Computed example of a mutant assay.
Amino acid sequence: MNPTLWTGLRSTFLVLVAVLWLLPVWLMVVNAITPSAEYSGAPAWWPETFGMITNLTEAWQTGQMGPGFLNSLLYSTICAAVAVVLAALAGFGTVVLKVRHKTLWFWLIYCGTLVPLQIFLAPMFTAAARSNLYDTRLGLMIVYVAISIPFAYFLMRNFITTLPREVFEASSIDGAGPLMTFLRICLPMCRPAMFAAFIFQFTWAWNDLLFGMTLTASPEVRPIMASLINLNGNYSSVGPPTVLAGALIASVPTVAIFFVFQRFFVSSLTLSK
Rank of each mutant, 00 (worst) to 15 (best):
M1N: 11
N2W: 05
P3W: 00
T4V: 15
T4E: 10
W6M: 14
S11Q: 12
T12H: 11
V15L: 11
V17E: 05
V19W: 09
W21K: 09
P24C: 03
W26K: 13
L27H: 04
N31E: 10
A37V: 14
E38G: 04
Y39M: 05
G41A: 06
A42F: 14
P43M: 04
A44Q: 14
P47H: 10
T49S: 12
M52Q: 06
M52E: 05
M52D: 04
I53G: 03
T57Y: 08
W60I: 08
G63L: 00
Q64E: 11
F69A: 07
N71D: 10
L73F: 14
L73N: 02
L73M: 11
Y75G: 00
Y75Q: 02
T77V: 13
I78V: 14
V84Y: 07
V84K: 05
V85R: 08
L86Q: 11
A88P: 03
G93W: 07
T94F: 10
V99G: 14
W107K: 03
L108C: 13
Y110T: 09
Y110I: 08
G112Q: 13
G112F: 14
V115R: 02
V115G: 01
Q118G: 12
L121A: 10
F125N: 07
S131M: 12
L133G: 08
Y134A: 03
Y134R: 07
D135T: 11
T136M: 05
L138E: 05
M141S: 15
I142W: 14
V143N: 13
V143K: 10
Y144I: 00
Y144K: 00
V145R: 02
A146G: 15
I149K: 01
I149E: 01
F154A: 09
M156C: 13
N158C: 09
F159K: 08
L163F: 02
F168Y: 10
A170L: 06
A170G: 09
S172T: 11
I173G: 00
D174C: 03
P178G: 08
L179E: 04
F182N: 00
C186E: 00
L187G: 00
P188L: 04
A193K: 05
M194K: 06
A196S: 15
F198I: 12
I199T: 04
Q201F: 00
W204Q: 07
L209A: 11
L210H: 04
T214R: 01
A217E: 07
P219T: 00
E220F: 08
P223E: 09
I224G: 06
L228P: 01
I229G: 03
S236H: 00
G246M: 03
V252Q: 03
A256N: 07
I257N: 05
F259C: 01
V260R: 02
S267F: 03
L269I: 01
L269E: 00
L271F: 06
K273E: 06
